[in-house]
Structures are given as C-alpha cells and as structure tokens.
Amino acid sequence: MKLYPLFFFTFLAIAGCKDKPKPVANSIPRPTVSPDGNRIAFPNTVMMRSFTTQPTRSETIRTDFAAPGHVAAMVLKSSENPAERLVLFDDPSLSNNYTAILQHRINIQTERGNLERVKDLQAHGAASGKEVIEAQTQLANEEAAIISDEATLKLAGFDPEELRRARPNTILVVCEIPENQFGAITKGLPCTLNFTSFPNERFAGRIDNVNDYVDNTTRQIKLRISVPNPDGRLKAGMFATVGFGVTEGKFMTVSRDAVVTVQGRDYVFVQTGPQAIERRAVQLGQQRNDRIVVLGGLRENESVVVVNTLQLKGLSFGY
C-alpha cells in the first residue's frame, strides 16, 4: 500500500513529458539573388550590418601612367627611290607584308592601265568582252590581296599610308595599354621614353596612332609612338618604358577594398536600399595609396561596400 504514491507521481511525470510541445526548428533566412547576379536582396537589416559602405567622392589627385613598349620599326630614306620610305621591322613577317603592299600598289596601277587599254580596244573592235573580264579580274585580285596585307599591318599597330609618309630617321615604338586606361590616351599626346640601352636618358615621342580594336584576350589596346632618331642610336627591337605624363585634376575614387575582379572585368557593390545591394561594372584608373580612380560606372556619393566584398562576389557570381 505504501508504494502507490510513488507509482502515482512517476505516472504524472511521464504524462507531463508527453504533453510538453517539442521545439520547432526555423529555417535560416538567406539572401535572394537575381538570375543575372546583379541584385542581391537581404531578408533583414541585421544581415546588412556586416557590409560596411563608404560614399564615392571626388578629390584632386595627381596621376601618372607608364607602359612597356619596344621599337617595332625604323624608318629610313630609300636610296633607290627618295619618294619612298625604307621601313625596317623587328618582325620579318611584317617586312614581307609591307613589301607586298608596295608591290600590290604598283600592280594595281599597272592593271588599271591595262583595263583602260583593253576597254579602248574593245570600243574599236580590237578586243573581246572576255579580254575585258580577264583584265577586270586581274585588277580585282590585286585589290583583294592588298587589303589582306594592310589588315595584317594594322593589327600590328601600323597604318601603311602613314608609313609611306613617316619622317626618315624615326623609330616607331609599339606599346599596349589596358582598356581601362584608354580614356586618358589620345592621338597626338606627347610622351617620354626611357630605353633599357640608355637608362640615364629620356627621349621625347608622340602618339601617332591608336588601334581601332581591343584585344579580346588581354583587353589591351596598341599604340604607335614616333620618336626622332637622327643619330641612329635607337634600333629595332629595343625595349622601352613609355611615360604618358602626369595629370592633375578632380577624380572620383573608391577604396581599393571595394573592387573585385572577375574574368578581367572590375566590379563594385553599391547599396541601393536598406536591404538591397547592386553589382556594378566600373572602369578604373590609377591607384593612389588605398584609393582607386573610377573613370566610369559610378555616380557621386553612391554607397559602395568596402567590407566583406568577397562574400558578395560569391553570392553574385555563384562561387
């Protein structure tokens, strides 16, 4: 009889455990990313606190820019034909192209004269229509061939017409600059060159050609720079560093911690709302200390994320 109270209280304890509700596990809130990765929305402002922002600002800074180059050609006066220029390239294949262009020009003039002669003979009954077609075909073949050789030279940074007009005793330096530096570079801009062979001297040059295309792999643009070489000391194939001067002005800048690079392109993340961030492609210029010049893609006083940008990079690009 004395054991009944013990069993009774044990039963109540077990029953109480059965009636107690079990805790429900809540899912962890996650940010929402747009299909193109350009917009990231956070479920609450608490998650946004880890992404500190700074406003873009404009400031007066001094920027300079330099790029490696090499002497790709020398221009000399032809001893056989003073009206023509003798161009010595450091790449033998370009020499072949330029020589072929000169020959094609001669052939085109010859074929044009021949076509006019055949047409005149046909008008007087001394030539057939077949002969006219053959003369037209010969001219067309020469015109097509010269286009191919001209394209090869232009891809290497040379314009055949400008080569024919280049001053004798001049070297032509080819260098490549990043796409994001192109905005500050224009044809006719003076520059200073330092050659490895003459480390203590500076040579004055001028940009006389900017290529019409950006290399799809390197995202570089070729420039051609002419440099007087009256004493012939500078030779084809020599290496140089090309300085494009110092520019002082008011430029928009961001912290270097704000920039991420993916497949050769630069991006920053801009806070556009209390719980929203947008990925923005930007064009960058020179870096000064911990700030980078922004040439395009941002507006004044936009809030750019400067902390935990790699986390945003992973969310935006999926890795």
Rank of each mutant, 00 (worst) to 15 (best):
D212R: 10
A67G: 02
S50L: 14
S316I: 05
T32P: 00
T218V: 03
L223Y: 03
T63M: 11
L76H: 12
A258R: 06
K235C: 00
F317P: 01
F195I: 03
H104F: 15
A100Y: 13
A126R: 07
S128R: 02
L94K: 02
I28S: 12
I207Q: 09
E300S: 13
N180T: 14
G264R: 03
G314I: 00
C17T: 10
I106S: 13
A13T: 05
H70V: 13
V294Y: 08
N194Q: 15
L284E: 04
Q287C: 08
N216P: 12
R39V: 12
I40P: 03
L172A: 02
S34H: 00
K18L: 15
E278T: 15
G232R: 10
F7V: 12
F317T: 01
V173P: 01
R167T: 11
E134N: 13
R202K: 14
P43Q: 09
I177W: 06
V294T: 07
P23K: 03
V305L: 08
R49S: 07
E150C: 03
E116C: 06
A258C: 06
E134G: 05
E201N: 08
G285S: 00
G273L: 09
Y4L: 15
R279P: 04
G249W: 01
I108Y: 03
E80A: 15
C191F: 01
N107I: 05
L115D: 07
A140D: 15
T170F: 03
K250M: 14
E179I: 13
E162K: 15
Q109M: 05
Q181I: 04
P55R: 09
T32N: 08
Y4P: 00
P160L: 11
E134Q: 13
I177G: 01
G273E: 06
F269G: 07
I14M: 15
R280Q: 14
T110G: 05
L12R: 04
Q181D: 13
L139P: 05
Q54V: 13
D208R: 11
A73L: 01
A258I: 02
V118S: 02
Y267P: 10
I221M: 07
K313Q: 13
